[in-house]
Design a protein around this nucleic acid. Structure first.
Lengths: 156, 156
DNA sequence: GACGCAACAGAAAGATTTTCCTGCTTTTCA
DNA sequence: TGAAAAGCAGGAAAATCTTTCTGTTGCGTC
């Protein structure tokens, strides 16, 4: 059975607002979507418990907190067993400088985005990664020059 | 002159908490860092006006809002003039399905992360991108199978 | 001893959350 | 087919909790 749309246009309007600014008051949201605060609150509550909203976070300026260098690391691996994959996911999840880790299809097996202070710090991370993770066949580091766009707002 | 550290250990503790959960009350933050709400509020206020805190956003589950496909697009360009670069940044910033766009050093000129509904939607995006942006020498699409880790919390 | 900074206590303003109510739509049953 | 009943979404108002602002104190420095 094709489940009915979980989100109507009002829900999506609320989400568009909250994706841009999680600190908006219910009164402001309500005015924007044409409701009173109470039904807005109930809708947000529902989307939170449904797992549609996964969290509210504070974003920082990477340069201003001393992490101006972003590196994308493409990994090719030798061992494709379920055990290796699980262990790798755990290892990488525990590395705080790895902000994103994607398992990919195609020529690259994993793609990481890493935030570090400078090149020596990246080298230290690189050594730690290659020492900790066994069976890496190829590691390609690509360095970001400029963050042209960095959004967390999905187009809904 | 080596500017004094803008952030002391209390500031960083507050930022670590707020990066994980922007909805924490001042009372909860204050208890965690060992202060009363008022100085916490002043510190947060200061970091907001200083641009260290760039915003508070709501995160959604991409699959649950109908955007389960993430694609990384590597671009190589022919024209490296300042005008082209500026126009490209503007074009890409206005495309809502492009969540991230990085200007890179090395073999790849730009790396994009794109969120779409499915493969036909990606194809439509691809056609629009290549039709809109002139002078692309090479476009390589890599498809994500699994989001192993996706964090917005910088390691401070 | 005076100054400046950071924290604190308490109060006022504002926001969130709850409770209860109304009207609409859908369902069910005679 | 019609009508009562149930369920759903929104709204008003009150209670609770938070944020924000005021003045004040304590500590370290000069």
């Amino acid at each position: 059975m094709p489940s009915p749309p979980e989100l109507d246009s009002t829900d999506r309007a609320i989400l568009r607002l909250l994706q841009k600014d999680a600190a908006l008051s219910l009164a402001a949201i309500a005015a924007e979507v044409g409701l009173t605060p109470t039904p807005c609150w109930k809708r947000i509550r529902r989307m939170e418990t449904a797992g549609i909203i996964t969290g509210r976070v504070t974003l920082l300026d990477p340069a201003k907190v001393g992490l101006p260098l972003s590196v994308f690391v493409a990994l090719e691996i030798g061992d494709h067993s379920a055990g290796w994959i699980e262990a790798f996911a755990k290892t990488v999840s525990e590395m705080p400088e790895v902000l994103e880790c994607w398992r990919m299809g195609g020529d690259v097996d994993y793609l990481l985005r890493v935030a570090v202070e400078d090149m020596p710090a990246y080298d230290a991370f690189y050594r730690r990664l290659t020492a900790t993770v066994p069976g890496l066949r190829n590691v390609t580091s690509r360095f970001a020059m400029e963050r042209v766009k960095a959004s967390t707002a999905l187009p809904i």
